[in-house]
Write a protein that binds this DNA or RNA. Structure first.
Length: 318
DNA sequence: ATGGTTTTTACTGCGTC
DNA sequence: GACGCGGTAAAAACCAT
């Protein structure tokens, strides 16, 4: 959820919260906007008047409960609200309604209960924030409504929902991360992911390497200077379309590696590759391309540097 | 199924500490 | 010798047609 507003420096709506440091950073320009201590409750009231307008009655709606915390039940009494006995035909009708109500909702709520249990498990294992988990649950609900779960396992569709939620909310989470916490095969996972994209018309934000940057940088203990340099490099690679068709993580890795060399805060290819969960070979290849097309160190595009051709649609951005 | 692309795996050689 | 790094070749994975 990019609900952190726009960056004061570059104006881009690219602020994200680094959950590790509690810093609010702009993924576009690298500005550390502010330090956050606590994201707090969903709302706060400072005065009596505010409390009056904002207060609610009852438990908040929870999408993490199979029935949203509320559900319809059709009573089993034999009288109407006035205490009169129901006619036989009404009783028969009500019985049928009750049956239908149970039948249609039962299988789905049972499915949901199962699914949400898995979702909570995955969510806590991956240390996802609450809003991502809720976002994932919404996607799953939708899939359930459209009967997309049939023929696929609940767990795999939940895992894919988590990935979708991460992608649509610019959370640096890869399929590999998810794979580590679930027994589901990567191929199956990718297939389920596509189901969401295709059937539900969900359009995840194009995969952006800079999202992965924070994660890489903190894992490698890089200072903000190097991070900023990497962000700058990424901006240019993006402009040159060097990242089209490539795994965003490997692009980010190459940028971090290059930035490290330039700022003197060097990390070995091994280290960077490991943090990015890729191989030194891939890192080198991306690295080579970047160096080939960018004029270092002030980073300008080399004369005559043509953007790489777009061979086919980027598998990482839909 | 096929073809084009990226990524991974495995191996090799070179230079340096 | 261990390590970082560059290169290559072949296999695997992947997407599009």
């Amino acid at each position: 959820m990019s609900g952190y507003g726009n960056c004061k420096e570059c104006g881009a709506q690219a602020l994200t919260c680094d959950n590790k440091t509690g810093e609010l950073v702009c993924t576009a320009c690298g500005l550390v906007a502010e330090r956050m201590i606590d994201q707090g409750p969903e709302w706060r009231a400072f005065s009596k008047a505010e409390r009056a307008t904002k207060d609610r009655v009852g438990a908040p709606l929870s999408s993490l409960q199979a029935d949203m915390g509320i559900s319809t039940r059709i009573g089993t009494g034999f009288t109407d609200i006035h205490g009169r006995k129901l006619s036989t035909s009404t009783m028969i009708r009500m019985r049928r309604l009750r049956w239908l109500n149970n039948r249609t909702s039962k299988s789905q709520t049972r499915n949901l209960r199962e699914a949400l249990r898995e979702l909570k498990r995955l969510g806590s294992q991956l240390e996802l924030s609450q809003d991502i988990v809720e976002s994932a649950s919404h996607y799953y609900r939708k899939a359930l409504k459209f009967k997309l779960i049939r023929g696929r396992s609940i767990d795999s569709m939940i895992a894919a929902a988590v990935y979708i939620a991460a992608r649509t909310n610019s959370v640096p989470l890869t399929l590999k991360d998810i794979e580590k916490h679930t027994p589901i095969d990567r191929k199956v996972l990718a297939r389920c992911f596509r189901v969401y994209v295709k059937e539900l018309n969900i359009k995840p934000t194009p995969a952006d390497p800079s999202i992965m940057l924070d994660r890489l940088a903190s894992q490698l203990d890089l200072t903000s200077g190097t991070r900023q340099r990497a962000i700058e490099i990424l901006r240019h690679t993006r402009e040159l379309k060097l990242d089209v068709g490539k795994n965003p993580m490997s692009i980010a890795a190459a940028a971090v590696y290059l930035a490290g060399i330039q700022t003197g805060e060097r990390r070995t290819q091994q280290q960077v590759a490991k943090a990015a969960e890729t191989t030194p070979v891939t890192l080198r290849n991306r690295f080579k391309e970047i160096v080939q097309y960018l004029d270092m160190p002030d980073i300008t595009v080399k004369r005559g540097a043509a953007a790489t051709p777009v061979y086919f649609k980027d598998p990482w951005q839909f």
